[in-house]
């Protein structure tokens, strides 16, 4: 049994694309999962927003309103202030998309798309774009460029401070991507490794393998619940960090 091959098969992306003549359509397991998550999110958003008189419709509406109120009062307004309400739709979408993407990995046969650096990199680039947009919208282009140099800096330090601050912003965006990617990838590798312990010990002795199955499965169940917590936590942290960075840019003066 090739352990590394088994882990790679479950974690890495697979090309399921079709080739039409000389054109290759790169459909992969991750893009399919992302499409599925997007469709589910669209249906959920429609269900939450459509007004109705039935009890279920009213319950769903209340749930949607509570969610938006939580995002506004719990994350965006404390970090950004009243100016952040203009960006509330982005934060609401970001949180739900990351949460559903994380949770999709816990469903059998589905992939954790947030364990792919390209996906988290794309999300971080969107957040980076929002940070720059919020800065330009609040201070204007020249004001945003000036905000990279802290107030009271001597003129001869400006050529040094400006690149430092620009690189710090790039690092923040990179950190957003790496944090989510690393947490989701490591969680799934731990889950797989715990499961594979049974087969590794089973290769030495079948009885020992059966004996190892009980503690391994106990740990597996514990880790699955931990992954469920991490799915919520990482979606929250990504959204909160984005709102903090937007707040730092908006209140830079």
């Amino acid at each position: 049994m090739d352990i590394s091959h088994t882990i790679a098969h479950h974690i890495l992306d697979h090309d399921l694309g079709v080739t039409l003549g000389s054109f290759h359509l790169p459909i992969t397991a991750h893009t399919l999962t992302m499409l599925g998550v997007s469709i589910v999110l669209f249906v959920v958003a429609v269900l939450l927003s459509v007004r109705g008189k039935s009890l279920i419709a009213r319950l769903l509406n209340t749930l949607g309103e509570e969610y938006v109120a939580f995002m506004r009062d719990g994350i965006v307004v404390p970090a950004v202030g009243k100016e952040g309400i203009a960006f509330l739709p982005y934060f609401c979408t970001l949180f739900l998309f990351i949460l559903f993407s994380n949770l999709a990995g816990l469903i059998p046969q589905m992939k954790t798309i947030t364990s792919n650096i390209s996906v988290t990199g794309g999300l971080a680039l969107c957040s980076g774009g929002l940070i720059v947009y919020a800065g330009i919208k609040t201070h204007g282009l020249w004001g945003f460029i000036k905000s990279f140099v802290p107030g009271g800096t001597p003129w001869w330090l400006i050529p040094l401070m400006f690149p430092l601050e620009v690189i710090s912003l790039i690092i923040r965006v990179c950190v957003l991507a790496i944090r989510l990617f690393a947490n989701m990838l490591s969680g799934h590798m731990v889950l797989l490794s715990l499961l594979l312990i049974i087969f590794i010990i089973g290769q030495m002795s079948k009885m020992a393998g059966v004996g190892a199955a009980f503690p391994a499965m106990g740990l597996e169940i514990f880790m699955t619940f931990l992954e469920l917590l991490v799915a919520f936590l990482q979606a929250y942290v990504f959204t909160l960090l984005t709102s903090i960075y937007v707040g730092l840019v908006v209140h830079s003066h």
Partner: peptide, 18 residues
């Protein structure tokens, strides 16, 4: 605040990234 605590936990990663 909670925001500050999340920022502090990110500092290590920012250090390594730089």
């Amino acid at each position: 605040s909670m925001q500050d605590h999340i920022t502090i936990t990110t500092l290590g990663l920012e250090f390594a990234m730089a």
